[in-house]
C-alpha cells in the first residue's frame, strides 16, 4: 500500500494544504472582521442576539459597524498582505513550473 501512495508527500500536502487552504481564508476573514467590527461587540458575539422590541425578524447581526481605527487598518493590511503574498507565490509557481 505504501508503495502506491507517497505518504510523506501526502502528509506534507495535508499540513501545507490546511495552512494555505484553511488558514489563509481565515486570515482574510480576520482582515474583513477588523474592518467591519460590530458597533457593540458583545451584542452579537454569543448565541442569537437578544431580540430587540418586536424583533420578529431576529436580526442576529447588527447592521451598524464601528469606524475602523488606524490599528484595525494596520491589522487588516497585514492579513491581506500575507494572503496576497501567498497568491503571488502560487502564480509564481504556475509560471515557473512549465
Amino acid at each position: 500500500m505504501t508503495s502506491w501512495i507517497d505518504l510523506g508527500a501526502l502528509g506534507h500536502l495535508l499540513v501545507v494544504g490546511l495552512l494555505c487552504g484553511a488558514g489563509l481564508p481565515a486570515l482574510f476573514a480576520l482582515g474583513v472582521r477588523v474592518l467591519n467590527r460590530p458597533a457593540h461587540p458583545g451584542a452579537a458575539a454569543g448565541e442569537p442576539a437578544p431580540t430587540a422590541a418586536g424583533g420578529a425578524a431576529a436580526p442576529a447581526l447588527t447592521e451598524v459597524r464601528a469606524r475602523p481605527t488606524v490599528a484595525s487598518f494596520l491589522v487588516a493590511g497585514l492579513c491581506f498582505a500575507v494572503v496576497a503574498a501567498a497568491i503571488g507565490l502560487g502564480i509564481g509557481f504556475l509560471v515557473t513550473r512549465s
Partner: peptide, 14 residues
C-alpha cells in the same frame, strides 16, 4: 474558521 471569525460581523460588510 471563517464562519467563527466573521459570525458577529455586520452582514453587508462581511
Amino acid at each position: 474558521l471563517v464562519h467563527r471569525v466573521t459570525r458577529d460581523v455586520p452582514r453587508e460588510g462581511r
